[in-house]
Design a protein around this nucleic acid. Structure first.
Length: 466
RNA sequence: GGCGGCAUAGCCAAGUGGUAAGGCACGGGUCUGCAAAACCCUUAUCCCCCGGUUCGAAUCCGGGUGCCGCCUCCA
């Protein structure tokens, strides 16, 4: 078996073949930093983080590049509204992005390039396109000549004629053709700008990704990913720019994730039906959000609601409880000479199935169902009166291996209990021994009010926070 | 108008030719001093509807209905 992934370009699942043996060059479109990200914006970082982790798990070295669009109309607008400069706004929300995404368990990208740090590369890119006859200047703007690029529409599977009928030229635009798009925008008074051969201005939206992908990953990359809504026009335009310039394939595989929906409708900033990650994680364990997102295949839409999140939370807690129980039992385990080999085989099978599912276009939904089956298997084992240290460790290791690819940390950090509570637990133990159950229950209720849940097991009392 | 996606139990969700994974919720039981947790059992003769292909279809083909998305900034 090997990794297969669904390629938007060909509309089918394909065997992954890297450009360079053992390496993956991956570019994921990052946010325009004019606001906190919402839950929908969080889906690409999460699902493609898993894609990256899985490639690494399978022995690939992944060069994962994700950009920040830190100059743009919306940033300028936000800056004006808030009375701050555009760079201040951008820096603020870049920091917020890192914070949010870290809470969601997303690994740092290999590289996080910013548009404003790559202006020269962009200018060079645009100049080269003009030289090659793929772009033209018009009063300080530069536009890409869509009809010069033969494959235009091949990624989003739109015919140029159809697109043309839907496109329109806004009043005052200087495009020769409605489908042409801006590579460089002349600065209006008061806007941030950089000097260029066409006068002061700033990059258009699409050119930055082409220029930065090329700079950090080369002319041809393995995987280019982003939200479904970026396929057109953003990614289509990237293909046009990059391939027009280099004459080479820009990206071998295009991955697009489905949307997060609210009441069956796309969550988006323009519809106003969004929930910010920043706000949500104040009341909700971010890991639950991650787990919930991974419980659906990345290409399918996810309907988002508190109820669904709650049910995901219950499920995740069950897995975690079992994982903790395994650790708890380790302290009371013996070196039993049981049939280790058959257990090794059983657990190796879980891993094998996990790999099979993930190889099939990163089916995290099925990967999670395997984690649930493993949980059941472990619970069954834990019911036996005696447990072998070696087998417990095998279980733990299997859990950890699968969870780490999904980016889940099953081990809860437990702050130590304060002395008073420990005292109460001890007192309750004594009460139970002397069959003073009234007092024992009283203490259990008391602790429950402090959000400490007690569980009596054959191996002694165990506590957890609610 | 063009292109595309989806429709599976009360809810969520895998499954793209071989006879319905997994989770949440519900009910019954085991364990427990009682709980909690866990485990066991039960829950879709059937996968939106109609027709076709096939020994065999939720899965393929044709038609229909409903919902959603892209074609414009958007993850």
């Amino acid at each position: 078996m090997a990794i297969h992934l669904y390629n938007t370009l060909t509309r089918q699942k394909e065997l992954f073949k890297p450009i360079e043996e053992g390496k993956v060059r991956m570019y994921v479109c990052g946010p325009t930093v004019y606001n906190y990200i919402h839950i929908g914006n969080a889906r690409p970082p999460i699902v493609f983080d898993v894609v990256r982790r899985y490639f690494e798990y399978r022995g690939y070295e992944v060069n994962y590049v994700s950009n920040f669009t830190d100059v743009d109309d919306k940033i300028i607008k936000a800056a004006n509204e808030l009375g701050e400069t555009a760079p201040e706004i951008a820096n603020k929300f870049i920091a917020a992005y890192h914070e949010d995404v870290k809470a969601l368990g997303v690994m740092e990208a290999t590289c996080h390039p910013r548009v404003t740090e790559n202006i020269q590369e962009i200018i060079d890119f645009v100049s080269a396109l003009i030289e090659k006859g793929y772009a033209y200047e018009a009063e300080g703007d530069v536009y890409f000549k869509t009809r010069e690029f033969e494959g235009y529409g091949k990624l989003s599977h739109q015919s140029v004629d159809e697109l043309r009928s839907g496109a329109r030229i806004e009043v005052g635009e200087k495009k020769q053709n409605p489908l042409d798009f801006a590579l460089w925008k002349a600065a209006k008074p008061g806007e941030p700008y950089w000097e260029s051969p066409w006068g002061p201005g700033r990059p258009g939206w699409h050119i930055e990704c082409s220029a930065m992908a090329q700079k950090y990953l080369g002319d041809t990359i393995d995987i280019h990913a982003g939200g479904r809504d970026l396929a057109f026009p953003h990614h289509e335009n990237e293909v046009a720019q990059s391939e027009a310039l280099t004459g080479k394939t820009f990206a071998n595989y295009w991955l697009h994730n489905g949307y997060i929906n609210i009441n069956n409708e796309k969550m988006s900033k323009s519809l106003g039906n969004f929930v910010l990650v920043h706000d949500m994680i104040k009341n909700q364990d971010p890991e639950v959000i991650r787990f919930f997102m991974l419980s659906v295949h990345y290409r399918n839409p996810i309907n988002f609601s508190d109820e669904l999140l709650e049910s995901a939370k219950t499920g995740l807690e069950r897995i975690k409880a079992t994982f903790e129980n395994l650790h708890h039992r380790l302290a009371n385990s013996a070196d039993l000479s049981e049939d280790i080999d058959s257990w090794k085989e059983t657990l190796a099978n879980y891993k094998k199935r996990f790999i099979t599912e993930m190889d099939d276009d990163f089916n995290t939904a099925n990967a999670i169902s395997i984690l649930f089956e493993l949980t059941k298997e472990a619970n069954l084992y834990l019911q036996e009166p005696n447990s072998s240290k070696e087998i417990l460790e095998l279980f733990i290791q299997t859990f950890e291996e699968i969870a780490s690819v999904l980016g889940l940390d099953l081990m809860e950090e437990k702050e130590l209990l304060d002395g008073e509570i420990e005292q109460l637990i001890e007192e309750r133990n004594e009460a139970r021994k002397s069959r003073n159950f009234a007092r024992a229950d009283e203490i259990r209720d008391l602790l429950k009010e402090k959000n400490i849940i007690l569980e009596d097991t054959p191996q002694g009392v165990r506590w957890k926070r609610k």
